[in-house]
Amino acid sequence: MGSYSRFRRAGRLACAMLVVVGMLVGAGALFARGAGEDAEYPSRAVTYVIPFDAGGQSDITAQYQREGLERALGVDVVIRHQAGGGGALAWSALARGSTDGYTISGNNIPHIIIQPLVRENAGYETEDLRPVYLFQTTPIGLAVAANSPFDTLDELIEHARANPGQITVSGSGTHTGHHLAIMQLQYLSGTQFTYIPATGAAPSVANFLGGHTQAILGNSDDLVQHRDAMKILAIGTTERFHALPDVPTFIELGYDFTAGIDRGVTVARDTPEEVVRRLEAAFDAVSRDPDFIARMEALGFEQHQIGADEFAAHIERKTREITTVLRELGEL
């Protein structure tokens, strides 16, 4: 009995001590954070959330940006991955999260626009997120196999018009840049393709290279890498793409649309204006670094230096464009 009560006493004591220690630590943490809020932003590490898997294009770009950002902001920048729901997991967390600017997130167009349009509850609305900076586009191009009978986009479209749904086109995911591109092409040319969505860019390329689809909507970097195995018919840039100067744009060929994945960075909507501007300036500094631009272009990206206001206008424009296409094609 004696030892039992001693145990009980010991247990209670342990609990009491833990509570005290816990409160002290917590108070310390709160105090430290409280003091931090008064100081100028940023005063502690900034978390840069990548809404996709490690090793993807968004991740690679962020890894390159990190050092420059740390220099520009003067604090640590921690990259963390929160993949899921095609980006929705991270964006819904950001929309509901704190507005202090210490959590920023990659922003991918068109995903961030389409998801709230087509899902019952994506967990966020595009307007819940405040665009900060747009730094990059991966143009999307359309290609067929090297031994394909089609040599130009017109021949492909001609065939598709005569045989609706017969041409299979590989791409990455549904309600993504690739999916939107095929929808826009169908809408503008009045044809019908069979879009075969894969779980990512790599499996999509594998499906195409294995001859399981006749055409592919591929990211510029994949097109550059595998150009020997394919004929690239058109690319979704406004002007000719630097890495593929012989490939015409869709616009040149008479289909007035651009296709690509725009990458930028975003924060929660109610983040203070001066915090947004501070981040904008930091990303601007990084994005103008010639070394960074050269490295990114070598990987097959198109670099931009677009600030918060222009970025917001771009999202608005894209939203209108996408809504029209989706509505016309009966997706909404």
Partner: peptide, 25 residues
Amino acid sequence: TLGIPGAPPAAVLLGALLLKGMRPG
């Protein structure tokens, strides 16, 4: 050989390769 990862860990390795400026293929 192709830049197509056979498994999820290989996908992260692909990122690491690209970070170092090495293009598979």
